[in-house]
Design a protein around this nucleic acid. Structure first.
Lengths: 204, 204
DNA sequence: TATTATACTGTATATATATTCAGTATTTTA
DNA sequence: TAAAATACTGAATATATATACAGTATAATA
């Protein structure tokens, strides 16, 4: 970390005080007023320097888009992403897959979890998992028989009961008589366990 | 303090989450994007309502000039009681009925709710409601056909679909072919609607 | 029953704001 | 010693943003 100059420190302090006082960051003009500058560009160049030295971030194009980087922050970790269950592809946490986030306490379910998966289809309806339900998913490949798992075969992602028949055979079992068991021979096919369900959330 | 509506709570939560994420408050357009509104005036009117009710302050003319008042912040999370569905008696919030409490944001479901009801039996299994699921219950007697209601007949409490057949006849319909519809003649029997389901929570 | 509050869409606009460009001058770094 | 960083003034501008205005519709309140 490069060292901060005294003027830059004044600007940084000014931002902090301003946020504490008003609840939102200052504009370039605000900084000028507070510190006696006569051109908004004075504030601008100081902000760019502080950004370069990693004391703040500046959201391009946004008004008052200044955020102070506080090393001792911040993540209570209670914003959980909601990911749509798409037929193809792994349910990754890439931004384009995140429909929205849900605020919820860390210990909301009995086990920690990583994201919510939005269910498509009714293959698990007899287990009480309906369309558009949100499954709380813990990312893990350690699952046992009877667990509800998020499994991936090639590019197809599915939610099913896990049942290991032998060292070579795994069955993925739906909870709906209209659906068939999926039998996987691990010597022939690749099975990826993305995680398992630790809870469920439904909004009527 | 005037009471906040569920939509206003959503907006308030949205502001809090936005600030936590970015370090600065949202614009009207940001709020619209987060909550799915299509007109900036939707955000504007909610903000004015929140200001009037003293949950926030708005700096006139300033961009992102929203500041959350302290009392609004503490209002965010809440402890909601979990009540066991006992066959007999109204599910009251008396202490002896509260199994435990769950901390969750006020606007967790789309509608405000009052408590969690722990489900017994499988009479609603085809609606994805299983034994020991927690139904988020909003206390109200205003229900419409198709709502999942918490109904009480004499001392018996049950969760069913609500279906008003006529001014005198109400049917309570299970979602399980092993169970029969409950037909109530309001002239003969007393039906109490304790509330309706606004969501569901399951812990594996 | 009339009125207010809530909950929106949609359009429009004055202005608040970020940001670039053109300078000047001093200090620090390579 | 040349280049880069610091530290400003001053003007210009595209756009981000608050905010008013015109509607529609429903629920709550007096």
């Amino acid at each position: 970390m490069k060292k901060i100059t005294s003027q830059q420190q004044r600007v940084l302090d000014c931002i902090q005080v301003y946020i504490k006082k008003t609840g939102f960051p200052p504009t370039r003009a605000d900084i000028c007023r507070e510190l006696g500058f006569k051109s908004p560009n004075s504030a601008e160049t100081h902000l760019r320097a502080l950004e370069k030295k990693d004391f703040i971030t500046i959201e391009s194009g946004a008004s008052r888009g200044i955020s102070i980087k506080n090393k001792a922050v911040t993540n209570n970790g209670n914003e959980y992403p909601v990911i749509g269950l798409v037929a193809a592809g792994s349910p990754t946490l890439a931004e384009e897959n995140i429909e929205r986030t849900i605020n919820c306490p860390k210990s909301f379910f009995d086990s920690n979890f990583d994201y919510f998966l939005k269910v498509k289809g009714l293959s698990m309806k007899d287990a009480g998992i309906m369309e558009d339900d949100l499954i709380a998913v813990k990312k893990t490949s350690e699952v046992k028989n009877g667990d509800i798992v998020i499994a991936r075969l090639e590019d197809e992602v599915t939610v099913k009961f896990f049942n290991r028949k032998s060292s070579k055979i795994v069955e993925l079992e739906p909870a709906n008589e209209d659906f068939q068991n999926i039998v996987i021979n691990l010597e022939q096919d690749e099975l990826h366990i993305e995680g398992k369900s630790v809870g469920l959330l439904r909004k009527n």
